[in-house]
Design a protein around this nucleic acid. Structure first.
Length: 326
DNA sequence: AAACCTTCCCGCCAGA
DNA sequence: TATCTGGCGGGAAGGT
């Protein structure tokens, strides 16, 4: 039987689910193709978890250690599908991996990334002039650091030629299901989705997580870069004066330019962004309201509460009980 | 809930 | 002249 080699690169410091999600989908697919079909396809997957360095033990963000079967550099067989997981938030560089990717990507049928693994593909130049996506929190950074990439912040995954990129964490599972569907058809991928209790096609898109992100960013570079900087510095004091200094404009002129570029006054823009991010925290974490208020740059829980009431007509507490995960 | 203080922001004008 | 930029003032909004 023909083997199709699926290689998942386990990046240090990323989420384990970037690795284990796709691994489970492909492993499940292999078993199903084996048992159910009695070889009508004549092919099946062979799964390899590879390290991006010579060190085979890879520690993920949660501390879970994954022992890889091989180093990426030792693979000599033809790779069918390569999946690069997200790496640490500090974005360690893996120069050897980049070089390897540049040399080998053309001969790989499908090159994929999960979450901020897209930055690795971008570094290797594989996303130049392509449509791509990444984790919603990092879309602006991806498009500003690599201007030739058309970043789509809405999609769960994007296919452009033989390059596939997917959004944050669990989106790697959605991508993997789609890859299996390409290979073995809908019945098999539906079976996997059922077995693993997944959606075959997730309803909605990642913009539901961040409405503000799906809006147009300024076409002027300084303003766009400022918008991106704001996102990663929501905790900071972001008054008009400070923002104006950041882009070397007078406060008056900055406020005027910012409004014409974004359609929001600076204060309103930041307020909306803070609400977006705190909603996300309320939905997905157990952080206390106090922690979330601090994390998102609200002066206090009182302020956060007032702004919630004013903008989305509910309190943070009520919002969490409606949309929180536990 | 009220009081006080800060920040926002927009019209207006002047200079580049 | 047309357009961009910056400073000022003060009412409004918002934070503590």
């Amino acid at each position: 039987m023909e083997k199709r080699l699926i290689v998942i690169v386990a990046m240090p410091g990323g989420l384990a689910i970037d690795i284990t999600g796709p691994a489970d989908v492909f492993s499940c697919a292999r078993q199903m193709v084996d048992s159910k079909c009695k070889d009508p396809f004549g092919v099946n997957y062979q799964l390899l978890i590879a390290s991006p360095t010579c060190e085979l033990n890879v520690t993920t963000d949660s501390g879970l250690v994954i022992t890889c079967q091989t180093s990426i550099f030792d693979i000599t067989e033809k790779i069918d599908t390569l999946i690069i997981g997200g790496n640490s938030r500090e974005r360690q560089k893996f120069p050897d991996l980049i070089v390897w990717l540049k040399a080998h990507s053309a001969s790989i049928k499908r090159v994929c990334s999960v979450c901020i693994g897209a930055f690795v593909l971008a570094e290797a130049g594989l996303l130049r002039n392509k449509n791509a996506t990444t984790h919603w929190m990092h879309c602006t950074e991806l498009s500003s650091r690599f201007e030739q990439i058309r970043v789509d912040p809405n999609s769960i995954f994007v296919k452009d030629g033989h390059i596939y990129t997917s959004a944050g964490a669990s989106a790697g599972i959605d991508l993997s299901l789609a890859l299996v569907e390409e290979d073995f058809g809908r019945d098999i991928s539906l079976d996997i989705a059922r077995t693993l209790v997944l959606y075959l096609r997730r309803p909605g898109n990642q913009s539901q997580f961040s409405n503000l992100l799906s809006q147009q960013f300024s076409s002027k570079k300084p303003v766009r870069e400022l918008q991106q900087w704001i996102q990663t510095n929501l905790k900071a004091n972001l008054n008009v004066q400070i923002l104006a200094e950041k882009v070397s404009m007078s406060p008056r002129n900055f406020a005027r330019v910012f409004f014409t570029e974004t359609g929001f006054t600076p204060a309103k823009y930041i307020e909306r962004l803070r609400v977006e991010f705190s909603k996300r925290y309320l939905e997905e974490t157990n952080y206390s309201l106090d922690q979330i208020a601090r994390e998102c740059g609200f002066g206090s829980t009182d302020t956060m509460r007032n702004i919630f009431l004013r903008t989305i007509d509910t309190t943070p507490y009520d919002y969490r009980s409606l949309f929180g995960s536990n």
